[in-house]
């Protein structure tokens, strides 16, 4: 029997070792009959042989893929930059990957890592803007806490992540009703006018039906907001010119029904990103919020111009 000698380190089950006169790289097989020489300096090798048999340490690229996936899901569903960075950092830290760099922008993640003499990992992930889903953000956040506390092993974490990503959005009728409610009560609390709130409720419902329709056909943000702004203006004009016994101001109705279009998430996240000194992403998101405001104003404005100057109506 001739026995090999372990060089290098045996983490991840990837080991450089010599078996006979042949140098091998890879997992040590029992058939290779490695002998651990009995010097004190070789005790380290023995330990590492034990480790690679247990294979407790997952492979580096799996860990980094998990981190990248979690970060991507977070970013897509409207988390702040620092939350994404911290999540990636915590997952890597939990699985002992120290030499790791993550750079997160508002629509991309850059992740590189290396371990001495073993593997390198570099990945750029493009993250398209998608619909906001704070439920997913909450769940991934909780998952990352559990991983950091060491309660999950990596395959479980992958399974959980997949499950979270498939979390369905709410049912359409719930969203539509919620939109109506928020328009109506927002109108009430700023204007204190019950008929106006009822109109805003109705307009909110119609607006959200349009928004759902637009999302299904993946219309661009520009179109959605301009047409949405125009739509609420048309509806508010119709509603206020109905012959009703009570007086309703046009602006009262429209201030309430504009609510579902307001880019609250972009606005808040941009502020918090800038507060965390993630200036690039903060400014991109700020611009996003600002443009949405401008689109809405353009939509409202176009309809009003048409109404005043072509149809010759007056705005109440």
């Amino acid at each position: 029997m001739y026995f090999g000698v372990i060089f290098g380190n045996a983490r991840n089950g990837r080991t450089v070792y010599r078996c006979g006169n042949v140098k091998k790289v890879g997992t040590i097989m029992e058939s290779d009959k490695i002998k651990i020489q009995g010097n004190s300096s070789d005790l380290r090798a023995e330990n590492e042989l034990g480790k690679c048999n247990n294979s407790e340490q997952p492979e580096m690229h799996r860990v980094l893929e998990l981190a990248l996936e979690a970060g991507c899901i977070l970013l897509k569903n409207g988390a702040e930059i620092f939350r994404v960075e911290e999540t990636i950092w915590h997952i890597c830290n939990r699985y002992h990957i120290e030499q790791m760099d993550a750079f997160v922008l508002s629509n991309g993640i850059f992740l590189t890592a290396h371990q001495k003499g073993e593997e390198n990992f570099a990945r750029v992930k493009y993250v398209p803007l998608a619909k906001i889903h704070l439920g997913i953000v909450t769940e991934v956040n909780a998952l990352s806490r559990e991983i950091a506390a060491g309660k999950l092993d990596i395959e479980e974490a992958f399974a959980r992540l997949e499950e979270i990503e498939k979390m369905p959005p709410r049912k359409d009728w719930q969203l539509i009703l919620a939109s109506g409610l928020s328009c109506g009560s927002f109108c009430y609390l700023t204007q204190k006018n019950t008929p106006a709130s009822c109109m805003a409720f109705a307009i909110g419902i119609v607006l959200y039906i349009f928004l759902l329709f637009a999302r299904r056909y993946k219309l661009s943000k520009l179109i959605i907001n301009i047409v949405g702004g125009g739509l609420i203006t048309v509806l508010a004009l119709i509603a206020t010119s109905l012959p009703l016994p009570f007086k309703v101001g046009f602006s009262q109705v429209i201030i309430g029904s504009i609510v579902p279009l307001i880019p609250g998430m972009a606005f808040v996240n941009s502020i918090r990103d800038i507060a965390d000194s993630d200036f690039i992403s903060g400014i991109v998101r700020m611009l996003d919020a600002l443009l949405v405001f401008v689109y809405i104003a353009v939509g409202v404005g176009c309809v009003l111009i048409f109404y005043e100057q072509v149809l010759g109506g007056t705005i109440r």
């Binding site: 704070l134 439920g135 909450t138 959005p169 919620a178 939109s179 928020s182 959200y208 609250g264």
Partner: peptide, 12 residues
Amino acid sequence: AIAAFAILLESP
């Protein structure tokens, strides 16, 4: 208003 808006944002 805010609870309804939170539904629109898909809060848990």
